[in-house]
Nucleic acid binder design. Structure first.
Length: 282
DNA sequence: TGCCAGGATGATG
DNA sequence: CATCATCATGGC
């Protein structure tokens, strides 16, 4: 099998990426791993990451990043969207197992994003026992209230230092419920250095989990989501009670060997597959 | 109205 | 180690 390399070409102010395999923008941004993207049309989204606003769309031509230089695509968005990873080979490998093949074929093109660690941690703290539309609203209000304005109504995700200086009452407009106090605890620990997110890069998954779960409201699931979606640790498999039952039922001996060190990717496909119609939660 | 949402926590079988 | 009530809020 020949892997077709993607090519990024700047035309005017925009950059067009053609030749992408196994990439579906709608599925990737809509599957619940990121909460800062708004669908603006067919295959078109507007969102903010790393303090940069972006209009992006996918069509038969490829992936179009508006007002984005190729250099910025290469240095920021390529990595963010996981386009520096060979998912064609990865998905082909996952497909060696029947169950995983079903899951991959059901919604091909989902990629694991590499978001900002701090934003990822906060997002999944806020997502606990919550639904995606509501989490999106809370995160949006959080950015509008405390993030740096980027123009055109866009706001960066607020720094930990900014949130750490707030009184609990200041978070009431977010309507985050009891999760607000968890958010403040994370901000205090991140701002004081008690939680050093940059240091996590150099730690083992096990040690990183211990650091993250020292934050109130951060358990195994939120820690693993942070490591998978915020640090690109594709081997980490976030599971809740429901997903654990699904996995025990399908793979009592663990994920098949073809998943290799990308169990998190396999889990993402399984989750999306089982959650879609026909495989409701018990 | 009642139920649910990619949970964590603390207590209890 | 599995299960359970509780937490606060909005959408359906």
């Amino acid at each position: 099998m020949v892997t077709i390399p993607a090519t990024a070409v700047q035309t005017g102010a925009d950059t067009l990426v053609a030749g992408l395999e196994c990439f579906n923008l709608d599925l990737t941004l809509g599957c619940g791993q990121a909460f800062r993207w708004q669908k603006t049309g067919v295959g078109a989204w507007h969102g903010v990451a790393f303090g940069l606003a972006l209009d992006i769309s996918q069509s038969g031509e490829g992936l179009l990043l508006k007002n984005t230089a190729e250099a910025q695509y290469e240095s920021v968005w390529k990595r963010y969207f996981g386009l520096d990873t060979d998912y064609a080979a990865l998905c082909a490998r996952l497909g060696r197992d029947g169950g995983l093949r079903q899951a991959v074929e059901a919604s091909p093109g989902i990629r694991i994003l590499r978001q900002e660690p701090w934003e990822t941690l906060c997002s999944f703290i806020l997502s606990q026992n919550n639904n995606i539309p509501r989490v999106t609203g809370i995160v949006r209000r959080l950015c509008e209230c405390f993030g740096e304005p980027l123009g055109h109504g866009d706001f960066a995700f607020p720094a930990a230092e900014r949130l750490a200086a707030l009184e609990p009452e200041a978070l009431e407009p977010l309507r985050a419920g009891y999760r607000a106090s968890y958010l403040l605890d994370a901000a205090r620990k991140a701002a004081s250095g008690e939680l050093d997110l940059r240091e996590l890069e150099s730690l083992s998954t096990c040690e990183a989990r211990v650091r993250l779960t020292a934050v109130r409201g951060v358990g195994r699931k939120v820690a693993d989501c942070t490591l998978l979606y915020g640090f690109g640790r594709l081997e980490v498999v976030p599971v809740d009670v429901w997903m654990r039952r699904v996995l025990r039922e399908m793979y009592p001996a663990g994920l098949p060997a073809c998943a290799g060190d990308c169990g998190g990717v396999a889990q993402q496909y399984l989750f999306h597959w089982r959650r879609s119609a026909g495989h409701p939660r018990p």
